[in-house]
């Protein structure tokens, strides 16, 4: 079953073609990865799927519904969660408030009942808080920092909080833009385990962009490769690794170690 489908996205900024006729499908309950050299258009693809960018051409379908014209907040409410390449947490807020914001679309309190904070509003706050404690904080092991302001946390933990915020939404599809970038080995392993658990225990479909080939090849069910805005390959990790065009794309990019090198053992280098 396909839960997310991108059909022929083309997006350009002035003369820069960030995406050219990109299509992909994400199977429900899978981990699907998008890889490609820097500037290949991966983040642009994510932004187009979540509704920040409006591709000039193409359609996107979520759970069988065409959402091409649906604004970003509505797509989120339909179950599309995401994290950002450069962490987009609310730095002044505590971890708890950040994660509660993730649950925004699941809550109903309006301004009136909020101000009186009686009955429904209070119950809802308490309920959502308990759910977050139970489902998200214990799972991601961040209960001890729930009251800390986000800005005071180390980078690796911030990434984890951002994942927590996306999970609090109880998304159907979770998009992760470079979830382990800048992490040390141990943090990467933790994150890889969390992502697998999200898929297996939560039954959430994951679509991720990642440069860490070791991790991509380890946990993904399907991998798509972008280069200069074009999709040059798609298939199982094994198929993609064997694809000469893919190897070429990585060889052609000066600023990256070659895919070949990366695939040979040396895991976790960013």
């Amino acid at each position: 079953m396909t839960i997310l489908e991108v059909d022929g996205f083309s997006l350009s900024f002035g003369g820069v073609h960030a995406l050219r006729d990109v299509s992909l499908t994400v199977a429900e309950g899978s981990i699907t990865a998008v890889i490609g050299p820097n500037g290949a258009g991966k983040t642009s693809l994510f932004n187009s799927i979540s509704g920040f960018y409006r591709p000039q051409k193409g359609r996107v379908t979520l759970s069988g519904q065409d959402v091409t014209r649906v604004p970003a907040p509505r797509r989120a409410a339909m179950g599309l969660g995401r994290t950002f390449q450069n962490i987009a947490l609310f730095r002044g807020m505590t971890v708890m408030d950040n994660v509660k914001l993730g649950a925004h679309v699941r809550m109903r309190t309006g301004p009136m009942s909020a101000m009186f904070y009686m009955g429904r509003a209070r119950r809802e706050e308490v309920r959502v808080r308990a759910e977050i404690e139970r489902e998200v904080f214990d799972f991601l092991e961040i209960d001890h920092i729930r009251r800390s302001p986000v800005a005071s946390l180390p980078y690796g933990l911030q990434k984890r909080v951002e994942l927590a915020r996306a999970l609090a939404m109880r998304p159907k599809v979770l998009m992760l833009d470079e979830p382990v970038a800048g992490m040390n080995r141990e943090e990467k392993e933790d994150m890889a385990r969390f992502i697998l658990d999200v898929k297996e225990q939560w039954g959430v479909t994951v679509l991720m962009v990642e440069h860490d080939m070791g991790m991509v090849m380890d946990i993904s069910d399907r991998v798509y490769v972008l280069n200069f805005g074009q999709r040059i390959a798609g298939g199982t990790p094994a198929e993609v690794q064997a694809n000469p065009e893919v190897i070429e794309a990585y060889l052609g990019a000066d600023d990256m170690t070659t895919l070949r090198e990366r695939l040979r053992g040396e895991r976790g280098a960013a």
Binding site: R74, F90, M93, L101, P111, E125
Partner: peptide, 24 residues
Amino acid sequence: RTRVGRAFIAIRDRDISASVLGIN
């Protein structure tokens, strides 16, 4: 103390990520 106030602050701090969280 509620989602309404948090949404306000979210809009102030980063309106992009506010909308990815489904805030209208």
